[in-house]
Computed example of a mutant assay.
Amino acid sequence: MLNLLTAILFLFGTITPSAAQAGSLLDIGQINRVAISGEASRIEFATSNTEPYQARIISTRSGWFSGWSSSWFSNECATRTTMEIRDQTLLIHVVNAPFLSLSDCEVSIRANLPANASINIEQAALSARLTGEYGNVFVKGHAADFSLDGHASNVDISGDAVRSDLRFAHISNTETIRLDSHALDASFTFGGDVPINYTVDAKASFIDSKRDSTPGAKPSIVIKSNYARVTIR
């Protein structure tokens, strides 16, 4: 029935391609921490010193009706996600589209942050891509897909299902990394001959590492999971 309705609307020219709705743009040059809560989102952070320090919320139509917006159903792809600065912390609360809307509105958060800002993300589901220099990074979600290309002082990721890819551009020999998940797919890249200390506590695991674990060394990696696949380079 839905396919027939879509065909009829197309033939009579009453549907047109939808466009993404741009959200707020905020100056964040004075912040040192980001805290994200709420529902699902895609997160893209960088710490470039040649670009403006700004944060932006983008809402993009997705789902089974995402390709078209109908004059019969005039709901826009809007989001009630909020963003504010309080005590040098960028606070973002993600709210997705109503359950009964014709298509979902995927929320994306894009920001260029001052270097060494700390990140705290607690969401039901998330996909986060961080490039650059960060302080402490804490991530918690039922489903989390996380990558870091650069450096973080400490990383703590937990969730029911976690995929992480941590690529360190340099090491300060003080880093602590903790991953805690029911099902985990994790990869680490440190480069050079940096000594690392790692432990894996899992019911079933596959560890692919060309590095020996050096007790007491930093970076220190602690992994706890029922099922884990870990690659260390």
Rank of each mutant, 00 (worst) to 15 (best):
M1D: 08
L2F: 14
N3Y: 11
T6Y: 08
A7R: 12
T16S: 14
P17V: 10
P17R: 13
P17M: 06
G23Y: 11
S24R: 12
L26P: 05
I28H: 09
G29W: 03
R33G: 01
V34M: 02
E39V: 00
R42D: 08
A46Q: 15
Y53A: 11
Q54A: 03
I57F: 03
I58Q: 12
S59G: 11
T60M: 10
R61M: 02
R61Q: 07
R61T: 06
W64M: 10
F65W: 15
S66H: 06
F73G: 07
R80P: 00
T82C: 00
T82Q: 07
T82S: 10
M83F: 09
E84L: 06
Q88W: 02
T89S: 06
L91D: 08
I92G: 00
V94I: 10
P114N: 08
A115F: 10
N116T: 10
L126D: 01
G132K: 09
E133Q: 15
E133V: 14
G135A: 02
N136D: 14
N136P: 01
V137T: 08
F138P: 01
H142W: 08
A143Q: 08
F146H: 04
L148P: 03
D149F: 14
I157H: 02
S158H: 03
G159F: 00
G159W: 00
D160G: 08
S164L: 03
S164R: 01
D165K: 13
F168S: 05
E175Y: 10
T176Y: 10
I177Q: 04
L179I: 09
H182A: 15
S187W: 01
F188L: 11
F188Q: 09
G192P: 05
V194K: 03
I196R: 03
S205E: 05
S209K: 06
R211C: 04
S213I: 10
P219V: 10
V222F: 07
I223C: 05
